[in-house]
Design a protein around this nucleic acid. Structure first.
Lengths: 209, 209
DNA sequence: TATATTTTTTAGCATATACTAAAAATATAA
DNA sequence: TTATATTTTTAGTATATGCTAAAAAATATA
């Protein structure tokens, strides 16, 4: 139809794909984000992606692999940069404060005001979907590890006491971050969510004199 | 069969119920708690309750009303007393510390180590189930209100500054509490969960001199 | 033009789900 | 004993879900 070939996909033999793969993935992402994995039916996904089931399965494998690809897309698009800034900021207090403020913004972004996909989309999923369960859990653990790494550096930099309980504190920051997703789902305003998120930094040890 | 008549239900005409209503409700509660509302199929519920679908529907109405009744049972059984103690403790710091410690214990109780039913069971539910969505949300709001009420009393008692941002702080405590459910689902040990939960009290303003 | 290759469209399949009609079973009341 | 009321058992129904076979359509290459 139109010249929508992605750069990395050379035109080849056979009937050309009639839809933009990346755009379709982005639309699938929105459905999974808003509704969660299980309630996002293949039928609804197809409607939103404007393709038929056989195209979905030929292009993305199945519902589960489509979800996994959408989730990676989500991470890259929304969280990569905030996480990079968090690790780059030399001041731990400012880093935490800014990261949680940005997080509140993402969780209640106007297009998709529905919390974090990694936290919420695979809750109450069938126990058989082990691949998805493991994948979202791994991403959550990555975030916790990020907090942990950053706190250890803060200890090395003399910004927080060396006897800080890093596993507990990084776990607590992670708990706040994940809890914010539920608040977002419960319909808080972004101003309220930011005021709450600001309290995360209060769990850090008080600055050394 | 056996004398299992609940005290409040007088024996009447007709074939007597062959199962204990309260026991069946408790078993349904466990299924909803562990698996969530949607993945808990009527078929599985019936198996665990040891009854057939018609008995379930005659006794509890339908899946949704069974869930609502189970959730109220859950609240009464697990959270009523901790909440009462939280409100009764005259010291806000100790109240928060104890409440979050008890919460960690409930969320990872040996029988059902799967977070809070009110927080998790109705995530990713079909949007048509408005009654359930509203009910779980209302219960979450009640907890937040409890935090709010207790903090205002702490202000009146001169335990925390009068300019404390009560909505934000109660929201932050609520966020920690709800976030703990996700940690519980991710398989933390109770010792880890308690160490994390202890950080909630750090968000309170420092005690007045 | 003819052939090979890939995608799209159409029309479904098998399974699981929430729920129920109908009849058999078991109690009380007359 | 007979009639009435309630529950249980059996055997389903209608619908939605994830997924797919088969044929038609659209491109590149020989």
């Amino acid at each position: 139809m139109s010249a929508n070939a992605s750069l990395s996909e050379r035109r080849c033999k056979g009937r050309p794909r009639a839809f933009d793969r990346t755009l379709a993935l982005r639309r699938a992402l929105e459905v999974f984000w808003r509704r969660g994995y299980a309630p996002a039916s293949v039928s609804e996904l197809c409607k939103v992606m404007e393709i038929n089931p056989p195209s979905l399965y030929a292009t993305f494998g199945n519902k589960a692999s489509l979800f996994l690809e959408a989730m990676n897309f989500y991470e890259e698009t929304y969280w990569k940069e905030p996480a990079r800034r968090f690790m780059a900021d030399p001041d731990i207090y400012r880093a935490v404060k800014n990261f949680f403020n940005e997080s509140a913004q993402i969780l209640l972004s106007p297009e998709t005001p529905c919390g974090c996909m990694v936290v919420l989309a695979a809750v109450n999923i069938s126990e058989e979907e082990t691949e998805i369960i493991e994948a979202v859990k791994a991403l959550r653990m990555e975030t916790k590890q990020m907090f942990s790494d950053r706190l250890r550096r803060a200890i090395n930099d003399g910004q927080i006491p060396p006897d800080t309980d890093v596993p507990a504190l990084s776990g607590a920051l992670n708990t706040m971050l994940e809890g914010l997703s539920i608040q977002a789902r419960d319909g808080l305003f972004q101003s309220e969510l930011k005021a709450i998120a600001a309290h995360a930094a209060r769990m850090l040890p008080s600055p050394r004199p």
